[in-house]
Amino acid sequence: MHTVPLTLLTIIGEGLLRERLITEIERAGAKGYTITECSGSGSRHRRVGELLGENMKLECVVSPEVADKLLGILSDEYFPHFAVIAYLSPVSVIRGDKYV
C-alpha cells in the first residue's frame, strides 16, 4: 500500500484558545483537524476551577512546511502568554493528497 510521509502536529493548550488556534492552522494551510478535551498536569501545574475552562488537544496532519510555520507562530505568539505545548510526530498517511 502506498503511503505519504507527513507530520502530525499536536497542540495541547487552554480551551479558551480553541477558535484562535483553529484560525491559525487554517490560515497556515491545514485541511482539517481533530479536537478533544483533555486534562493533566504540567510545568504550570494542574489547572483548577471551572472558570479557567478545560484544556484541549488539537491535532492536524500537515506537510512539514506547514508544521514548521505553525510552530513558529506558536513559539512567537502563544508560548510566552498561555499554557500551551506543541510537538511533531512523523506519520505515514494513506490518501495523503487530502492533507496537502
Rank of each mutant, 00 (worst) to 15 (best):
M1K: 08
M1E: 04
M1A: 14
H2M: 00
T3H: 09
L6I: 04
L6D: 13
T7F: 04
T10L: 01
I12F: 03
G13Q: 01
E14W: 01
G15I: 07
L17P: 10
L17H: 07
R18P: 06
E19I: 08
E19V: 05
R20A: 15
E24P: 01
I25W: 01
A28N: 09
A28Y: 05
G32S: 06
T34V: 05
I35G: 01
I35M: 03
T36W: 00
T36V: 07
E37S: 10
E37R: 11
C38Y: 00
G40P: 07
S41T: 14
G42M: 09
G42R: 09
G42P: 07
S43W: 00
V48T: 13
V48E: 15
V48Q: 15
G49I: 06
G53N: 13
N55S: 14
M56G: 05
M56V: 15
E59D: 13
C60A: 15
V61W: 00
V61C: 04
S63Q: 03
P64W: 02
E65F: 05
V66D: 04
D68K: 11
D68E: 12
L70D: 02
L71T: 02
I73W: 04
L74V: 13
S75L: 09
D76M: 09
D76V: 11
E77M: 06
E77K: 14
Y78Q: 05
Y78M: 14
Y78C: 13
F79W: 14
F82L: 02
L88A: 08
S89K: 13
P90H: 03
V91K: 08
S92W: 12
V93T: 02
V93D: 02
I94L: 01
R95A: 10
R95P: 04
G96L: 11
D97F: 03
K98D: 15
Y99K: 04
